[in-house]
Amino acid sequence: MANWIIIRPKWEQVTEYSYGWAQEIVDLLKDKGRLLADLGGGEVSRSEVERILNEYPKAHVGFWDHGSEDCLWGSETEKVIDLKNCDRLAGKEVFTLACLSAKDLGPAIWRQGGTYWGYVDVFSFTTDSLAEFQEAANCGFKFRFLEGDTHQNSLQRAKETFSRLSLELVAVGNIFAAICMREDGDALVYLDAHKPEEEEKEGCLLALLKFPIRGFFH
């Protein structure tokens, strides 16, 4: 089974949640002896990421934090992976919890022989249902990389998980969270379970609202 580099920057309130969600995967990989590096706990620089990729050239990469159409962010101002250095992920499995990055960055990695798990739209969540959103965010990694299910089955099972969780949130009257969950599942893609499709580009507004709080990974 493949070994992993996990990247999980933390520098503001929204990234505190993604950092915590990634801890579950870090712990599972540690238990199996498959974690090579865990970058995070604060801002992460481009040079740090490139150094660790050079150190472990055969490792696959997991990323929990903000994204844009063409990049993954290590801080508010620094892109750690973008179209200029994504060749470093050629041939790798890449798993992300990052808004929008499956639009341009994902296909660029896919064209270089990699795979890309990510989102073509905003990943949003509410802080009154954190356990449910963590389950949704991490389930695909477990299906594909811990259980060893196929690309297509892992994507299908993940989308079914988002749908199930959305219905469970409806059942307890948390309609706002249910809508977020449904939209997150709709935005999920996994290149190589299917080929990239042209997506209409939309902006991503980073916000954290109250009553209930809703977070956006951007």
Rank of each mutant, 00 (worst) to 15 (best):
G114P: 06
C99W: 02
C204I: 09
E16Y: 08
D128W: 06
T96K: 00
K201N: 08
L100Y: 14
V94R: 04
V170T: 10
C139D: 05
E43D: 11
T161S: 11
A131C: 11
A187M: 09
E76T: 14
L188E: 04
K210F: 12
F63S: 02
K195I: 13
K10V: 08
A59D: 00
F145G: 02
A102W: 01
G33Y: 07
R111V: 09
I179Y: 12
F141L: 02
T126P: 00
L188R: 08
F162K: 02
R8E: 04
K142M: 12
P212H: 05
I213G: 05
W73A: 03
E50R: 08
T15R: 06
N153G: 09
E199M: 04
R157V: 02
R214C: 04
M181Q: 05
A22G: 15
C139F: 12
L209G: 09
G40M: 04
G62W: 02
E12Y: 12
S163Y: 08
H60N: 15
A22W: 08
F162E: 02
V122N: 15
G173C: 10
E76K: 09
W11C: 01
F143C: 06
D65A: 15
S68Q: 12
L89W: 03
F143N: 08
T96V: 08
K92G: 00
Q134M: 14
E93R: 06
L100V: 07
F162C: 04
E78C: 12
T150K: 10
Y56N: 03
E43A: 13
L191N: 01
E132V: 14
V49R: 00
E168A: 05
G33S: 10
I179H: 12
S166F: 03
G106H: 02
L97G: 04
V120R: 13
A22L: 10
A102S: 14
G113I: 02
I52W: 03
K103M: 12
Y56P: 00
F95V: 15
C139R: 07
E132R: 11
R88M: 15
G41T: 04
L167M: 10
E50I: 15
W73H: 08
A102N: 06
L89S: 01
H151A: 15
A158M: 14
M1W: 10
G41I: 01
V172C: 04
F95D: 05
D87N: 12
A158E: 14
S129E: 10
S45Y: 06
A177F: 06
V189K: 01
L169K: 05
Q23V: 15
S18C: 11
V26T: 13
P212S: 03
A108Q: 07
T15I: 13
F143K: 10
K195W: 08
A90C: 07
N3H: 14
N153L: 14
F162Q: 02
E132K: 11
E199Y: 05
K84L: 09
F141T: 03
S18M: 14
F162L: 03
